[in-house]
Design a protein around this nucleic acid. Structure first.
Length: 293
DNA sequence: AGCATTTGACCATG
DNA sequence: CATGGTCAAATGCT
């Protein structure tokens, strides 16, 4: 069994144990703090497990892609332009507070298609950079309204902007989380980041993966933040970037290495249970289908 | 008029 | 064959 799979199983077993402990706590008397801690731990564990599985899947896709590239391309009939595009960079945003999902991210987009997606209640809209033909900018994004929360739009970015027409974002976001992965030579980078640049204050939840330290530090910290703009001024903060660490090549045996950005564990501004649990709600939302396949 | 959006058709992929 | 991504003609908007 692959090392990563063992880690996922370990995580899930730990989650089960903690859930049992929580159930026991709820049956008997227990402190609210203790329950909160358990819930937070369980959510973190499942988020880790999902991320590990996702990451492994992405790694395999890339490996297959590299193998195909290495073969004699004459035997591979690729008529579609898409295949040469290859997903060099993928960012997934989950944003709320948008009227129609047209998040102003500083770039000009032109809608070129919309599709009903099997298993989803809401259609997915396809946008390309307005300067695609004038500046040969191949950036593309997909926007889909969340099935679970009508206020949430999931935005997936594909490709980098090569155009230089960037305006300042005016978007009001109450929640923003992004994940990006891109390829650079033989290395695969998986990072999480915020696109926003002027945060000042935070109401954020950061989930620590430090107990994975003894599991070869494969996966690092997730963080989520709530922030919004009030009269053009940022009211909240985002997570900080920490260090980057390689997936242990000794255990993977693959030429592909990975890097995952991390952030420290903390729960800030959680003086009220409401704010704490509303933050937890965000985590639950992300945990379901935050990354499209 | 010029540009953006809509929407059905087309095509690649699994 | 089902599904998702893209194309392009028709239509809408300014």
């Amino acid at each position: 069994m692959m090392m990563e799979e063992k880690l996922v199983i370990n995580e899930l077993e730990l989650g089960k144990e903690l859930a049992n402990r929580l159930m026991s706590n709820l049956k008997h008397t227990s402190s609210v703090d203790s329950n909160r801690t358990l819930i937070s731990e369980i959510l973190r564990i499942y988020q880790n497990a999902i991320f590990m599985l996702r990451f492994n899947e992405d790694k395999n896709i890339l490996k297959r892609s590299l193998e195909i590239d290495g073969k004699d391309s004459r035997n591979v009939f690729k008529k579609r332009k898409v295949s040469e595009k290859k997903t060099e960079k993928v960012k997934v945003f989950v944003a709320t507070g948008q009227e129609n999902g047209s998040i102003d991210d500083g770039h000009c987009w032109r809608k070129y298609g919309q599709k009903e997606i099997h298993g989803s209640k809401n259609p997915r809209a396809y946008y390309r950079c307005t300067h695609r033909f004038t500046q040969d900018c191949l950036a593309v994004k997909q926007v889909q309204k969340s099935d679970t929360d009508p206020l949430v739009y999931e935005v997936k970015y594909l490709g980098n902007h090569t155009c230089d027409n960037i305006t300042s974002p005016k978007t009001t976001m109450t929640t923003n989380f992004s994940v990006s992965s891109f390829e650079e030579g033989n290395r695969v980078h998986v990072t999480e980041q915020s696109e926003d640049t002027k945060p000042t204050k935070s109401e954020e939840v950061m989930i620590n993966l430090e107990d994975l330290e003894n599991k070869k530090n494969i996966f690092r910290t997730f963080s989520f933040s709530n922030h919004e703009i009030d009269n053009g001024v940022w009211k909240s903060n985002i997570f900080s970037e920490n260090f980057v660490e390689d997936l242990s090549p000794a255990t993977s045996g693959s030429a592909i290495t990975s890097e995952v950005l991390s952030a420290p564990a903390s729960v800030e501004n959680s003086e009220t249970a409401d704010s704490y649990f509303s933050s937890l709600d965000n985590i639950i939302d992300f945990g379901q289908d935050w990354l499209w396949s």
